[in-house]
Simulated scan of single mutants.
Amino acid sequence: MKILIRNLTRNTTEAELKALFETYGTVQSCTLVLDKDTGISKGFGFVEMPKIGEAKAAMKNLNGKELGSSKIRVKKAEQKPADSKSDAASEDD
């Protein structure tokens, strides 16, 4: 299951994010979305967890958790339409 993590501080690393989610199970991949020009985090990223039960536990327990100096928001990533050219995460909740 692909999980969207928002409201990350700009200095959160992929390693920190992966370690946080690994407490709930196997992490298949972990990716921060970076600005193309600056290489700085845009404040959100994705984690993929192959086991649905582990992914759901991670989402339930980590949503609203403090990471760094902000409370992260965690939810299932929506599938983007195949013809969409926008980012995988829409910024409107």
Rank of each mutant, 00 (worst) to 15 (best):
E78Y: 09
A57V: 03
G45R: 00
G25V: 14
N63T: 07
G39E: 05
E66D: 07
G64V: 00
G64T: 06
L62V: 10
C30F: 07
S69Q: 10
S70P: 00
K76A: 08
R73W: 06
S70L: 12
A77G: 08
V27I: 09
A88Q: 09
E78C: 04
N7F: 03
R73I: 10
A77M: 08
R6I: 02
A15L: 12
V47K: 03
I52A: 11
Q28K: 15
K60F: 10
A58R: 04
T13W: 04
T23L: 07
E91F: 03
K65P: 05
I3D: 06
K80Q: 11
I72C: 02
I52Q: 14
S69Y: 11
M49H: 01
D83S: 09
P81G: 06
D92I: 13
F46T: 07
N63S: 13
R73T: 08
A82D: 05
N61Q: 15
L34V: 06
V47N: 05
G45T: 00
T26A: 12
D92M: 07
Y24I: 06
D35C: 09
A55Y: 03
F44M: 02
I52T: 15
N7H: 13
L17R: 04
D83C: 01
V27W: 00
T23K: 15
K36D: 01
T12N: 00
D37S: 10
Q28W: 11
I5E: 06
G68H: 02
A15F: 02
K56V: 14
S69C: 09
P81E: 06
E78T: 10
R73M: 04
L4T: 04
L17F: 05
A58D: 01
N11Q: 11
S69T: 13
P81W: 01
C30P: 04
E48S: 10
K60E: 11
D83Q: 04
E22F: 12
G39R: 01
N61E: 15
L62E: 13
G45Q: 01
E16M: 12
V33L: 12
L4M: 05
I52V: 14
Q79E: 12
E14A: 14
E48V: 07
I40H: 05
P81H: 07
F44E: 00
P81D: 08
K75D: 15
D87T: 09
K76I: 10
N61T: 06
G39M: 00
P50Q: 11
F46I: 00
I72S: 01
L67D: 05
K36N: 13
E48N: 11
I5F: 03
A58C: 03
P81S: 10
N61V: 04
G43R: 02
Q79M: 07
G64E: 07
T12K: 04
I72E: 03
E54T: 05
E66K: 09
K75V: 03
N7M: 00
F46W: 02
L32N: 03
M49D: 05
K60A: 13
I52L: 11
L34R: 12
N7L: 02
M1T: 14
A55G: 13
E22V: 12
N63I: 08
M1S: 14
K51H: 14
Y24F: 15
M59V: 15
E48T: 13
T13F: 01
K56P: 01
A57Y: 05
M59F: 05
K75H: 08
T38F: 04
S69R: 14
